[in-house]
């Protein structure tokens, strides 16, 4: 009986595999440009804004954008599998925000060998054949944060640095940028540096402990906005008042914006994710069409304080009210 079942299964499988084992029947007859967007963590509002930018630009350009989410920065291996799968799918271009820079190099090189155009978005991927890179300069952001702290504290502040998820290049660069400036201000004391995941729960947990250890903290520099939200919940629970501890973070979800308006966040770094994503999509489509594109595009965070809120155009940092990702 067992042999019969296995034989039947094998025969059925072989019959169906005969459909296209030697490759897809319809290959060249493609009208539509397909761009795969590989993101590390769509649970983060920042990436949802970016997806709004990618999908809106794709619609405008008449191309199809497909979203692939690794589900967290730790899922390096999953993202590698996703890249391999879209290579098999035969997309025209990949916009690639790696979970980690080095890990994806072999698969990205393979994708390029298969004729797929690759735009490296935001987190550096050192694959030598990448066609174009668009990148936020996190080292510059780190420097800008540190310079603001040095100026505000007149060179005598007590600082906690939360650079975000461990192992990410942008997180490392953000930290290194701050350290590079702070080391020139001997009066500034770095109380602690703690890596943690970029979500509210992780920020809350880490900050609850740090506030016990360092109740005299004056400045906290944070990675993206969900982590910052967790930090503020911990400060609130510890009985701190808005602005009593000056929090520096970046990106602007609705909640972060209201925390900023209430004075819980003193400085916000804005990188215009919607604009950046549109730009990435335009570059990817231009590459597929054989047009010339810049090899490197740098994006810098604008530092925003409350007194600048009314005079700053926030559209490139936000999505229309009520917009949601469709699954």
């Amino acid at each position: 009986m067992k042999k019969t079942v296995i034989s039947v299964l094998l025969i059925v499988a072989c019959l169906f595999s005969g459909f296209n084992l030697m490759g897809p029947a319809v290959n060249a007859a493609k009208d539509e440009i397909v761009v795969a967007v590989m993101l590390p963590n769509v649970g983060d509002v920042y990436f949802q804004k970016k997806w709004y930018g990618y999908s809106t630009a794709a619609k405008k350009l008449g191309v199809k954008a497909l979203l692939y989410d690794a589900g967290g920065y730790a899922n390096v291996s999953k993202q590698i599998n996703q890249v391999e799968d879209v290579v098999q799918k035969g997309v025209d271009a990949i916009i690639y925000h790696p979970c980690h820079s080095e890990a994806g190099v072999p698969v990205i090189e393979e994708a390029i060998r298969q004729g797929i155009k690759v735009v490296n978005d935001n987190q550096p991927c050192p694959a030598p054949s990448i066609h174009s890179t668009i990148m936020i300069d996190f080292f510059a952001t780190g420097r800008a944060f540190a310079q603001w702290v040095a100026l505000d504290s007149k060179g005598k502040g007590k600082v906690i640095i939360l650079p975000g998820p461990v192992g990410g290049d942008q997180n490392t660069l953000l930290l290194q940028g701050q350290q590079e400036v702070f080391r020139r201000f001997p009066g500034i004391e770095i109380l602690d540096i703690q890596y943690c995941e970029s979500n509210v729960a992780a920020g809350l947990r880490v900050m609850e402990d740090l506030i016990q250890a360092h109740p005299d903290v004056e400045y906290i520099t944070c990675f993206a906005d969900q982590l910052t939200q967790g930090v503020i919940q911990a400060l609130r629970a510890a009985g701190k008042k808005p602005g009593e501890v000056k929090v520096l973070g970046f990106n602007m979800s609705d909640l972060t914006k209201s925390l900023f308006e209430e004075g819980w966040i003193t400085v916000l770094g804005l990188s215009r994710p919607v604009d950046m994503a549109s730009q990435s999509m335009e570059i990817a489509v231009s590459l597929v069409k054989g047009e010339k594109v810049p090899e490197m595009t740098w994006i810098y965070h604008d530092l925003l304080t409350r007194d600048m809120l009314d005079v700053t155009d926030l559209k490139p940092n936000s999505v229309p009210k009520g917009w949601k990702i469709k699954f």
Binding site: G72, Y73, A74, N75, V76, S77, K78, I80, H100, E102, A103, G104, V105, P106, P165, V166, G167
Partner: peptide, 16 residues
Amino acid sequence: VLTARMVSGQPIVGQE
């Protein structure tokens, strides 16, 4: 095998 695929050592790669 995984480390060889990624050409790097990753401290949180096994989480899932």
